[in-house]
């Protein structure tokens, strides 16, 4: 099977759904790039080239370059979804949610509920998140817990090319607003991705490693670090299960609780700021539902509660990595 990058997997998902369903449109800043300006069309294809090639196949009617005004085009996308299109809007960096949050949490997220189930909002907002890209405090945050907090939104964090394609196709076919969070450091990761279309259901965790001693729950890019840590632990005779929940809303709590019941030890790895994070949320879940199974205190691994630093040395310290996971895993094993 062909190996593809995370970037190609996302591009393939959008293209295959645009071919399948004429209601699917793409909109965002520089999604084509150069459209409306003199020069080559499709010069950019998105700030990191994810939507490249779409305007050539589907034309400027379905691949819309918007002005730099998230409040307007995210609002327009929510309206388009409410009236029957299936927009895939790109919020270039998740950090820009501040200027369009009302359109998302007070409008799109509420339509189904406030119209008594008679309105659907098949909107996908693709957005880049995460540190490690030397992009400084305003372009590096992991704000997915804020979306997870809002009832009515579905929140997706693909950790591999295979998951990225299947989860995005699922998101586009889903009738509810989905926040699809792409980690910008993962775009060049490669993995096996089928050429055909496929869907991964939301709320279905993946076990990327299987073990009996310890459960590690990790999100997005952190799944790769957790896998590396689990492989090292295995050499030391400690077998760890790594759970990638894939979606934070809905959350596959059942799989997490089942694994904790089996292993009795839990480490959660989350790139979001520590307060009101997924790490805090999973810890609450396990403390409440599986306390009697725990053989050691839960350990959470998150960045410190600071903005993402621009200094490369500080940014490297900020992002959770394999050594911290190993340290926490050994600590819960020795408890």
């Amino acid at each position: 099977m062909a190996k593809k990058t995370y970037r190609q997997a996302i591009n393939e998902a959008i293209a295959s759904e645009m071919r399948r369903d004429p209601r699917v449109i793409v909109m965002g800043e520089d999604n084509a790039g150069g459209a409306g300006a003199p020069g080559e069309q499709d010069a950019w294809g998105g700030v990191l080239g994810v939507t490249k090639g779409l305007i050539g196949e589907f034309g400027a009617e379905r691949v819309l370059d918007t002005p730099i005004t998230e409040s307007a085009f995210i609002g327009a996308a929510a309206g388009a979804a409410a009236t029957g299109l299936r927009p895939v809007a790109e919020l270039m960096f998740i950090d820009f949610m501040g200027v369009c949050f009302d359109q998302i949490f007070n409008q799109a997220a509420k339509f189904r509920y406030m119209f008594g189930g008679r309105a659907v909002t098949p909107l996908v907002i693709r957005t880049m998140y995460g540190a490690g890209f030397r992009a400084a405090s305003q372009h590096s945050q992991s704000l997915y817990p804020i979306f997870t907090h809002i009832p009515g939104l579905k929140v997706v964090l693909p950790s591999s090319p295979y998951d990225a394609k299947g989860l995005l196709i699922q998101a586009i076919r889903d009738d509810d607003p989905v926040i699809f969070c792409e980690h910008k450091v993962l775009y060049d990761e490669t993995g096996e991705v089928p050429d055909e279309a496929y869907t991964i259901p939301f709320g279905e965790a993946n076990l990327t490693r299987e073990g009996k001693d310890l459960t590690i729950v990790a999100f997005g890019r952190m799944v790769n670090f957790a896998n590396q840590a689990a492989d090292q632990l295995r050499r030391d005779g400690i077998s760890a299960t790594v759970i990638d929940p894939r979606t934070t809303s809905p959350l596959d709590s059942e799989t997490i609780l089942d694994c904790v019941a089996e292993t009795g030890r839990l480490v959660v790895v989350d790139e979001a700021s520590p307060r009101c994070s997924m790490a805090a949320d999973i810890s609450r879940l396990v403390a409440e539902e599986a306390f009697s199974h725990l053989k050691a205190p839960i350990r959470t691994i998150t960045p410190p509660h600071t903005p993402v630093p621009f200094s490369p040395q500080l940014e490297d310290l900020y992002v959770p990595g394999v050594p911290r996971i190993l340290e926490a895993a050994r600590a819960v094993m020795q408890h």
Partner: peptide, 16 residues
């Protein structure tokens, strides 16, 4: 029956 075997079967079943 391992987690990877289960995921392999799911990958086949998920194809359109």
């Amino acid at each position: 029956v391992s987690a990877a075997m289960i995921e392999g079967v799911l990958r086949a079943l998920r194809l359109d």
